[in-house]
Every structure is written in C-alpha cells, then in structure tokens.
Design a protein around this nucleic acid. Structure first.
Lengths: 338, 338
DNA sequence: TATAATTTTGAAAACGTTTGCAAAAAGGTC
DNA sequence: GACCTTTTTGCAAACGTTTTCAAAATTATA
C-alpha cells in the first residue's frame, strides 16, 4: 500500500511485457482481448495508478493548468477561479493557483515556475509587465482573462466594458442624473481604461459637459472607496450620481455618504461594477453592472484546452456583453420629496 | 527559445560531464571553482531551467502541495487559501487548488489525482468521507484544516469553537439576552457540532432553559439564513437574540427580520461567525466571532512543510483561540426606548 | 621522485513511462 | 502443408535528471 506499484509489477502479474501493459492503458489497439483483460485485472488487484510524472517525461501532457490572478482575496475572482477549475476538472486537469498581487516580478517568477513544472497551459490576468516575459513564449498555450494586453497572437476573454459603462450611464441618465461622478481605479488595467474612455465618450455623445472635478482615482477596495468619496465631498462640487469602478468602492462610497448625512439613493444614485454576491446582501441592495465571472473562467478554460489539444488554435478575442442589475441604490431625480 | 535546453546542452557548452552540471546545480560540493563558474555561465547563456519533472522521477520533491476545500466561492475560504499559498510560495512550492463541494466522491478522486501527480503533501478540509480514503495513506504528509476528523496520526489546525461560542454568548448574556436562538448548519462538520455543543453547555451552565423551538438547522448560506429566520418567525416563539452559524446566515437573518419590521439590534441582537470582510461593510455592521483564517492557512502549511522536510514529524492538534468583534448588530436589552 | 592519500571528475545505471522496430504468432491462400 | 499476410507481442531506446562507483587528477608525505 505504501510503496507505489509500477507498470512493471502489472506486467509481471499479468504475465506480459510492459509494452503490452502500456498499450492497454493507452491506445488499447491491437492487443488480444484475453491479454487486455488479464492486464486490466492485474491493474485492479495491485491498485496500480499510472505515474503522471513518468508519462510527462515522455512528452505526454501533464494535464495541469496554471492560473495567475492578482489575489483570491479580491471577491471578484473566486467565482472566476471556480469557473476555470470546474471546466478543468471536467477534462481531467488540475490547476495551480497563484496570487501575484499585480506585481510584475512575482508574476514572471510564478510563470517560469509553472513552465518548469510542465503545465500544459496558463490562464492569466495580464498586467503591464506581462508582455515582457511572455515575448519568448508566444507559442506556449496562454489565454488572458479579465484584463489583457493587445497582441495578435494571444487569446483573451473579458467583458465589454464600453457596453457596461454605457448600460450604467443610460440607466442613470434615464433617471434624470446629469452630474455623474466617476470614482474608479487608476488607469492601469485594460478594463479601467476602457471604462473611463466609455464614460468620457458617453458624456460627449450626450452633450453633458465633462467635469474634471467629478473624477477621483484610487484602488479597487472598500477603503479606497471611502477615501475617494471623502475627496469628492471635500471638493464641494455638486453631483447627483456616482459610477463606481467596482462594487467594493461602491460600498465604501455609500458608507461615506451615509456618515455625511447624504441618503442613497434619494440624494445620490450609486452604480457599482462587477455584481459580486454581496451586492445583493448589502443594504441598500446595490445597483450594479453584472460581469459573468464564472462563465468567463469557464470559457477561457475551454479555449485554452482547445489550444492545448490542437482542436482549435485560432486566437480569439472575446468580449462578453455585461448586463445591468437594477436594485436599490439608484432613484429618479425629482421624485425625492413627493 | 522555443525548445527546452537540457543539462546535456549545459554540459556540452561548459565542456564538462552532465554529472558535474548536476552537482553544481545541487550539492555544489567537491567541484573546482573554475568548473563551477563555467557551468553557471553556460546555464546563464543558454537560459537553462531545470526540468522539475525529471527531477521528480528520480525521487526529488516536486515542490507541490494539494489543497482541498469545499468551494472557493464560499467567502470563508479565500483568505485561508491565500494564507496557504503565501506560505507555500515563500518556500518555493506551488499549490493545486481543488473544490470538492463537500462531495466524498470528488474529494477522493481529487486526492488520488494529486497523489498520481506526486504532490509532496496535502491540506484538506475534512468531511465524513475523508477517513475512508485516507486510511491507506496515513504515512503521506497531510494536514487537516478548519474541519477535521479525529485521528491520532493526523495533524489539524482549526479554531476553538467552544471558546468562540462562549465569547458570543457571554457578550449576549451581558447585554441581558436570555432567549437566544441558534440558527446554524446541520451538524455534519466538526465545527458545527462543537458550536452546538458549546451552545447547549453554556445554557446549562448559566441555568438558562434549553428550548428546542429556538433551534433551526440549514446550510451555511445567505439563502438558508433567510429560510431559517422565516421558519423561526413562523413558530411565534419569543427570542431576543440570534447566534448564527456563520456571517452569511446572519446577513440573511437580518434581511428577513428587517422585512418583518423587526429592528436589529434594537429588537433583536445578532451575532455572526467567521468575520468575513463583508461583515464590516454590512449595514448594520455585524458583531461576529473572528476566525483568523489567513493565519490558519499559514500555520497549517508550515506544519505540512515541516512534516515533508522531516524537520518535525510530530502530529499536532491545534485549536486557535478566536476573538469577538463587537460592532452594530448587538444591543443592550431594555435600553431600547430610552 | 616515487608513493600514498585526497580531491575532483565522468561513465553508466536508474526512476516509470511510451514507442519504433523486429520477431513471433495467427490467419489465409493455393 | 508450404508460403504469404496480417495481427499481436516484446525488446530496447529514449525522455532529463540524480547518484554510485571507479578512474583521473591533484596534493601531501616520505
């Protein structure tokens, strides 16, 4: 029990050569029914498990994926990770999860470690450092997820943030909001950039004047949401709605407004982004842009597995359409004191 | 760039044998300085990376851990996972994350898969199925985390729930609460059992009469919290406080009470369990029992790595002391209408 | 300067598989 | 039954390492 059986033991027990054993375990072609049965029985009796390491050394796939994300503690990622792992497991793959904290050095180090351990492919949330170490590995199976860097050789799957922001602003606009603040993260990721671009574009298209003083940039955290809202209030500028970079920021913003006697949604409407599970547990329940994170994880894994197996090697740039979930933090202007 | 260099290439480039290369890469002992330098240079120039698979085949450690949890989508686990991974990475290890959904079959299947892939050790959240497949692997490095099964051979690290529940009830008792309902998960895990035991014991010790109708059992989810609270209300039994099995249940309970016009904390005090990050973002902020999940993950990994390296093989049963975080969902009885 | 003791080096086996190739067995055909 | 095909089988090499053992080189001793 404690010492591993090898193909050799099976061969001896079945009275055949190791090649025969290997063949029934793999192709299974061109081996007599009787022998096949004898081998299979021996495998059963000895409780033989094939050694994935030895197979990998012969160039067989290790059936292992790498997944690089900023941090599993960021509530945006767990369901995405789950999507990846479910699809992976369904195909007999295991996945190495690595937290990079968005640090280029650890991202690169982890990536190289994964290569050394012969993962068959990698899914990663790209950063501005990504391309540097990816340069030499463009033939290696990789799919980017959520955030990406533009490359004609690399597939990615993310959400169409241009649409996401438009959805949010359409909703706010329809409620009569005209002074819509934007509290988001610094424009470092592809997603943050797209959202801000879309915000500017929308104002322009709607002939709403763009006001620098309605902009605050920080981090994707609750604490940062608090700080950004305080900063906004300090500016004494009027606003009737806030579009937040993500839900955590929105929670922090709502907390700060409440502390300052400003009612959400009566005085100010708030829209979050992501639709993490807590958005519907929050009081008031958060109106937000839903990102189908589980599906993103799942889809990226499907694409990666197709690349690995060679079934479909075309590079795909997929932007899933998000949706808006209208809950309790947005409210029509003017209907306040009715 | 695209084809891997082997130790052979390094040997040729440095003009030495592969044994010498291997030696400088490992022990590094008894090899002339000059040769050592030549080898190291060749490694640099060729951008050689040692093949972890080949090393593992020779019995070297794969520097890989397995981590089996119910689901990364359960907000209790991400920081625990992060604790494990940080400690692992600090020691050059990677970790396979697997979601079992508490299903015995997938738990066992994943465990075996991990063994086939030659992980050096496994950390797992035990279920009632665990012992069955672990039987034959008691000499393999394993540490249980959060939930455990009693075994003299296996280490675990968890929280002392007896103390956790006592902390909660002491607090409630000091506020004057006497009719404390218990809404928790079915008594399937070690943690759930301990908490309920501690609840009963506390009532007994405090001479508070134990009332079956104040008990509801369900799942560790928001939705279940809602259902359990509805069930409790349906019973028309009086209660002045609720101890919840975890924070998610607490959120659901608070939502239900609010819908029914019951104010938290003025009418009823609520205590959660776990202290997930959202507890402090919630309105009202949740009073709860804090489990140091990150530290639990970290500590269990340290123990596992000690077992693997042979530094310390003693089995350890660690119960970390939790703490209570008093926030806004608990309130003194009688001071309501002051 | 020869010899013994020590240090440094390389050849080769081994880890557990897969697979090309040739040999053996089985099946057809006349 | 002899010969030719076809199917089934096993031997051995290979994957990239580590490690044992013996040989070669160096140093110390006389």
């Amino acid at each position: 029990m404690t010492v591993d059986k090898s193909i050799k033991d099976v061969a001896k027990a079945a009275g055949v050569s190791i090649s025969t054993v290997s063949r029934v375990l793999n192709d299974s072609q061109g081996v007599r029914e009787e022998l096949k049965k004898r081998v299979l029985d021996a495998v059963q009796n000895l409780n033989y498990h094939s050694n994935a390491i030895a197979r990998a050394l012969k160039g067989m796939p290790m059936k292992t994926l790498g997944l690089l994300i900023p941090s599993i503690e960021n509530p945006f990622f767990p369901s995405m990770v789950r999507g990846v792992q479910d699809e992976a497991h369904r195909n007999g793959y295991n996945v190495f999860l690595c937290n990079t904290d968005g640090l280029g050095i650890v991202e690169e180090a982890q990536f190289k470690l994964l290569l050394d351990k012969k993962v068959d492919g990698v899914i990663l949330v790209a950063s501005k450092y990504t391309m540097r170490y990816l340069k030499g590995n463009l033939d290696f199976p990789i799919v980017m997820i959520d955030r990406y860097v533009d490359s004609p050789n690399l597939s990615y799957v993310t959400v169409d943030h241009t649409i996401g922001v438009k959805l949010a602003l359409d909703h706010l606009y329809s409620l009569g909001c005209k002074k819509i603040a934007f509290l988001g993260s610094k424009l470092v990721s592809s997603g943050a950039k797209e959202r801000f671009q879309s915000y500017k574009r929308y104002l322009y298209d709607s002939k709403i004047k763009f006001d620098e003083s309605l902009l605050v940039f920080g981090e994707y955290t609750y604490e940062s949401g608090i700080k950004m809202a305080e900063e906004l209030l300090k500016r004494k500028v009027k606003f009737d709605a806030i579009l937040c970079g993500n839900d955590l920021i929105a929670f922090g913003v709502i907390e700060t407004l409440k502390r300052n006697g400003i009612n959400v949604p009566k005085d100010v409407s708030i829209v979050g982004y992501d639709d993490i599970s807590f958005s519907s547990y929050h009081t008031p329940k958060l109106t937000t842009i839903h990102q189908p994170t589980y599906e993103i994880g799942q889809m990226s894994t499907k694409i990666l597995l197709d690349i690995i197996s060679g079934v479909d090697r075309r590079v795909k740039h997929i932007k899933i359409e998000p949706s808006i979930v209208i809950r309790e933090t947005t409210h029509r202007i003017g209907s306040v004191n009715r």
